[in-house]
């Protein structure tokens, strides 16, 4: 069963938007799953404030582009093909994501996430959403046309508070789990369901928006 799953994943192509706290952990996990191709977007560079939680940030990568470092690390593992775009995902990149199987949301703002909901509609590609704040996070599988992110971010959102290393790692792992379940038709989260993660009380629960 495990080898069948890996065979399925080998033919898949994944877009990761953002290579910071969530994105670095996500790229690391999916690059060890045998995913065929990983396309990574991030226009940002590593700085010393990232070192507490961003997997690929270290003394050797400070000042380097996050997407380029993530792709380089993936190539070092030697399983998946990786490509980096040292820029934020935008209109001009639509042709590049054609034929991809899913997009992983590892962005860090409400506006970027609302945009990804639109990208899902326009591209027909499902977005695996994840976000963190302090000890908390949420994960959702946003199919094209779902209003999950518009509903989540309909009110004024509280500013992001400082987080620590195991929060992005935990939420990233659950996102990758949902990605695998989605790609292998193994009962991923339903439409407009959101999995809430609370690492303060060590609880998870699913709600329907």
């Amino acid at each position: 069963m495990y080898s069948e799953l890996l065979d399925k994943l080998h033919s898949k192509k994944i877009v990761v938007v953002g290579a910071g706290g969530l994105g670095g952990n996500i790229v690391n996990l999916i690059s060890r799953l045998g995913i065929g191709k990983i396309l990574i977007f991030d226009g940002d560079i590593f700085d010393s404030s990232n070192i507490n939680r961003q997997l690929y940030c270290n003394q050797f990568t400070l000042g380097k582009n996050k997407a380029e470092v993530a792709a380089e690390e993936t190539r070092k593992i030697g399983i998946s093909d990786a490509e980096s775009i040292p820029d934020f995902f935008q209109e001009k990149y639509f042709p590049l994501i054609k034929g991809y199987d899913c997009i992983i949301d590892a962005t860090d703002s409400v506006s970027a996430r609302i945009y990804l909901e639109q990208v899902a509609i326009r591209s027909g590609i499902t977005v695996i959403h994840g976000a963190i704040n302090a000890y908390f996070g949420q994960i959702a599988v946003v199919r094209p046309g779902d209003k999950t992110l518009s509903k989540l971010y309909s009110g004024k959102i509280e500013p992001t508070r400082e987080t620590i290393s195991y929060i992005p790692a935990t939420v990233a792992a659950v996102q990758v789990c949902q990605m695998v379940k989605f790609l292998s038709n193994a009962a991923p989260l339903d439409r407009e369901e959101v999995l809430l993660v609370d690492m303060f009380s060590c609880q998870m629960r699913t709600i329907k928006l």
Binding site: G20, D108, A131, G137, I157, T160
Partner: peptide, 10 residues
């Protein structure tokens, strides 16, 4: 009743 604030960081 459940009251929640969504996370938006990454």
């Amino acid at each position: 009743v459940l009251i929640m604030s969504p996370a938006s960081g990454g």
